[in-house]
Computed example of a mutant assay.
Amino acid sequence: MELVTKHGVILDKTNNSFENLGVFNPAVMQERNTVHMFYRAVRDGNFSTIGYCKLAGPLKVVARCKEPLFFPEIPEEFQGVEDPRITKIDDTYYLSYAAYDGINVFGAYATSKDLKTFERQGIITPRFTFEEYSELIKHNYDKISILHSLFYDLFGRYKLQRLMLGKIYVWDKNIIFFPKKINGKFAVLHRLFPSIQILYFNDPSELTEEFWEAYISDLSQHIVLQSEYMHETSHIGGGCPPIETDSGWLFIYHSVQSNSKKLIYHASAALLDLHDPTKVIGRLKKPLFSPTEPYEIEGYVNNVVFPTGTALFNDELYIYYGAADCCVAVASVNINSLLSALKNL
C-alpha cells in the first residue's frame, strides 16, 4: 500500500544469552506516550522467552531488561513461549502466546494487573491428534476451503506421527484477545490452519474436549477470514489485536504466499463488524506491506514481515512487526486513510 512508511529496525538481538539469536514478533501496549513492548527473544538452539523494553513515543527505545520477563515453566513450553500479543480488558492485561514443546504448539495466556508480573491461565486451544482432527473436520467438507480438509486428512492418512517421537497434536496458533468483551463474552482470534477463527467463552473452564469437538465439527460457523487473494495462497493468521473504530474492528493480519518453493509473509488488513467479527466489511485485495528491505528479505527466516502490535499517535498508526525472524521493525500508516480504503472496497 503506497500510504505505508517504513521506519526501519528499532530493536535487534544482543549478546545477552537469552536473546543472542534474534528478537522479533512483539506484543505492544500503549499508555499515552509510552509504548511497552514484550518481544519474543530467541537464544541459540531456538529456545524462546519473552523480553521487555520501553519506548518513549513510537520509535525511541529508552529502557530494556537484561533478563526475560516471561519464560517457560510447564512441559508444554519446554522449547519456548513464542509470538506474544497483549490487550487490556477493563483493568486486566491479557498476554497470549504460543506454547511450544519442540513438537506441539498450543495457544495459552497469562494475566497481569501491572505489566510486571504475569499469572498463567493455561492452555485454551484443543488437544486433538491429526487423525482425530481429520475426522472432526470432515463434517465441514462442503462449507470450508479444501485446504482445511486436505492438510489434516493427509497427515492422518500417512500416519506421520508414527515417524516422530511423542504424540503429535494439531497446532493452534496466533491467539489474540479482542480488547473488550463482545456480547458479554471474551472474544479470541486463533488459527487452525489455514484460516482465522473466533472463539467466545465466559470462563476457560468451558473449553472442554466436548466443547472443541462440537466447535470443530461446525468450524465453518467460526471462521473470520479464509485465504482469498494471491498473497494468501499458503495460509493466513492473526497479527495485531483488533483496533476498535467507529467503522468497525481494524484488523492487521499476516498472509503467506507460496511462490516458487518459498514462502513470503505479508502484512494485510481487514475491517470487521463490531458486533459480529465474522462479518467482513472490507478487506485489502493486496498486502498492506510486504518484504522489500534487506532486513525483511534475508534473516533467520527469509521474506518475512509479521505484524503483532500497534500504537496510535495522533492519526498515525504504527505497526510493530518481526522482520525475517531476526529483529523488530516498524511501519506506519494514516489510520483514516486505511479505514477509508477498507470502507470503499
Score class of each variant (00 low, 15 high):
Glu244Lys: 14
Lys88Phe: 10
Val23Met: 03
Ser149Arg: 08
Lys116Thr: 13
Asn336His: 15
Asn334Gly: 09
Ile252Phe: 15
His235Tyr: 12
Ile236Glu: 09
Trp249Ser: 12
Cys326His: 07
Ser337Lys: 06
Ile182Glu: 06
Tyr321Ile: 07
Ser134Asp: 11
Lys262Ile: 02
Pro294Arg: 00
Ile319Arg: 04
Gly22Ser: 04
Lys181Asp: 08
Glu31Gly: 03
Lys180Cys: 13
Met164Trp: 15
Leu189Gln: 14
Thr34Gly: 01
Phe18Met: 01
Val280Asn: 12
Lys113Trp: 06
Val61Pro: 00
Lys167Arg: 15
Leu69Phe: 02
Val188Thr: 15
Tyr158Pro: 01
Val304Ile: 05
Ser17His: 14
Ile196Ala: 10
Arg127Glu: 07
Gly322Leu: 06
Asn202Leu: 04
Thr292Tyr: 01
Gly80Leu: 07
Thr245Lys: 08
Glu132Pro: 00
Ala56Gly: 02
Pro26Gln: 07
Tyr229Thr: 04
Tyr229Asp: 05
Ala341Cys: 02
Phe211Trp: 04
Thr14Cys: 08
Ile216Arg: 01
Lys116Glu: 15
Ile243Pro: 15
Val305Asn: 01
Leu250Val: 11
Asn46Glu: 05
Trp171Met: 00
Leu219Val: 09
Asn46Lys: 00
Phe118Leu: 05
Leu165Trp: 11
Asn336Pro: 13
Val81Asn: 03
Val304Ser: 05
Asn183Pro: 14
Leu288His: 03
Ile216Gln: 03
Thr34Leu: 11
Thr308Asp: 10
Gln257Lys: 07
Asn104Gln: 00
Phe128Ala: 02
